[in-house]
Design a protein around this nucleic acid. Sequence first.
DNA 1: TGTTGCCATGAAAGCGGTTTCTCCTTATTG
DNA 2: CAATAAGGAGAAACCGCTTTCATGGCAACA
Lengths: 381, 381
Amino acid sequence: MKAVSPYCGPDGEILTIWLGLANNQFGRQRKRHEKILVPISPTETAKMHSNSVTINDIADRAGVSKSTVSRVLNSSSPVHEDKRKAVMEAMKTLGYQPNVFARSLAGGRSMTVGVSTQSVGSPFYDAVAQGVINGFAGTGYSPLFGNGQWQRDLQREVIRTLIGRRVDGLVLIGGNVELEDLNELSQKTPTIMVGRQLPGWEGRSIFIDNVDAGRVATKHLIEHGHRDIAIFKGNIDHPDAIGRYEGYCMALEKAGIALNPELVYQGDFHSQSGVLGVEQLLAKGTHFTAIFAANDMVAFGARLALSRRGIRVPEEVSIVGFDDQPEAALMTPPITSMRQPGFEMGEAAASTLMGLMRDESIEIPHLPAELKIRESVARIR
Amino acid sequence: MKAVSPYCGPDGEILTIWLGLANNQFGRQRKRHEKILVPISPTETAKMHSNSVTINDIADRAGVSKSTVSRVLNSSSPVHEDKRKAVMEAMKTLGYQPNVFARSLAGGRSMTVGVSTQSVGSPFYDAVAQGVINGFAGTGYSPLFGNGQWQRDLQREVIRTLIGRRVDGLVLIGGNVELEDLNELSQKTPTIMVGRQLPGWEGRSIFIDNVDAGRVATKHLIEHGHRDIAIFKGNIDHPDAIGRYEGYCMALEKAGIALNPELVYQGDFHSQSGVLGVEQLLAKGTHFTAIFAANDMVAFGARLALSRRGIRVPEEVSIVGFDDQPEAALMTPPITSMRQPGFEMGEAAASTLMGLMRDESIEIPHLPAELKIRESVARIR
DNA sequence: TGTTGCCATGAAAGCGGTTTCTCCTTATTG
DNA sequence: CAATAAGGAGAAACCGCTTTCATGGCAACA
């Protein structure tokens, strides 16, 4: 974004380039074998400013055909060193940026990947999205975003739009589109799923084992002497919520603790659920010494509700959250939480997808959930 | 994504279309004036599946030229009702989706907007980004993201890339690129700035008045009897931080309270700053009864540090945060915070930019910061 | 009835690249 | 030394769509 002047490259350095003489009187092209300066013509200056230097301008300036320029650009077939250099110099001088659209139209690849998010402020999914953006940074691929809002038809619409834009690949973050649709879809476009486990998608989906994570979180409470452990479940049809609940049940069973339906609160992933869950337990007079929350927001809500009621955490009630969002470590007391490596999962999605698009054999890194132990769980007396 | 069968549209409904006879023996085109079914040919089926139905296919099926199809598509010039209908039907039957690249290449508009974020988990900026995504949903524009990471050269690179992709407009969320560069840039591409105040950008930048917000937040503390109000400043060169500090000074001055440098802690926008700020005040033995934090994360850090030291909030020390991220309401006690309507700002950016791109006269809605009063501020005895 | 002029529409020329095809040079081989 | 292979580079076709240009038909006007 500096001022552009003849003889200078975009960074202000003096340029020397090959003088190219196209179509001289001998009918064939020639180049002189000394380096000299070729001023940037007024026409060229105008083009540079309006950002419309084309491959033809480069070809003219370098004294070659546009085929050759294209070859240099893609190193798709060998080009004589002299010409290659001339082309490079011309591109640098004129600040050439290939037109992505022309390229995609002709070449078939768009260098764009579609990302379908669900969003609306879910810290975990936001972290994944950030990881994806980050993972594609500097790779030549640009991520195109669409927002599914956890609504099936909207998600389908988003995916349609993305495919309509001829994305080379697709990252789906969460969502609940039917497996059948996804299968059909992924035949046409390389697709990676994040945060959702699907049969037949091994190697193409990145997720943590919610069942096991739920089991570990519950086990942690049991190991601290708790037996009356409440669970605040997430949305009833959400696979993550279902998995975590399953893990909860497994841990209880293994410890020989009977499942008490009174201790199961069916909520969602919002903080309000934490508040309501606590209120309900208290209203019913159910005895509990610990809460396993659907996620951190729910845990925060629960913690607040307990404090409102004058119940101390962790002395009277212990809490385990899920996701380990940054704020968990800042609560009073800091909340023990099952960490999902969202950012890393997003990055992994990006690199895996790039492998997939290149038809390489890919392997998904194992990204385990990890219990971050802090101060919201106390040993029961 | 349903199975595609002849006679059926993408949604499975039975279609009736005009029979188009192209180039019949009379040399001119004809259409019959009764509706009949035209089966989808095997060739067409193949194309539908590989997502490569082109304008030519539509033209053939509808018995018109592709010029006419294009006219229908863009309603750029009047088309006879009969033909228009035939074209519409053909598009529906074949599930036509225009190729964005061809369109952009030929037409000049890409129907894409660039969004430059800074990210790395700043709740406020994430909210803005969400608002932007949301604001463009369903408008035909797709947002393309790039990540500037608060690094000047990276931001420039991102903007270059976005422009290289021929975005029709640009939303810049935060950042610290030089004004000069921005001015040059925005001559070529319609640009909206979010979260940053720039001279000469009135009407094109959406931000809250940080000075006033800082003033109001401080005034709130003063009104509760506080006089020894510590401020934890954000990054030293960050305009938001500077503005808020300025407001803090103004409020003090107006109340006739001398500025005490001991009470000014120069930190950044991370929670760690809150912890360190408190530690430093305590170490120095500086007397303070309130803290105005750079943002909520800092406030959370401060609150935690105070609790570690056994200092009660708000009984002994009051806290005001900034941003009002969702977790602020869930802290114990819930933190009073200056709300920045990030999501709404993002949405406003989207709609303003669309106006700008259409050359309409635009007006930026007034989005004020608002103090969310909760329980972290107590009246001093 | 012979002009004028507008409408609707098809043909064709780009848009800026990639890729195939062809041809001309050189190096390799018997 | 003739014959063949291989390498390098230009011409031209093509990607799917928009837009200009040209034209034929038809209503309006004198």
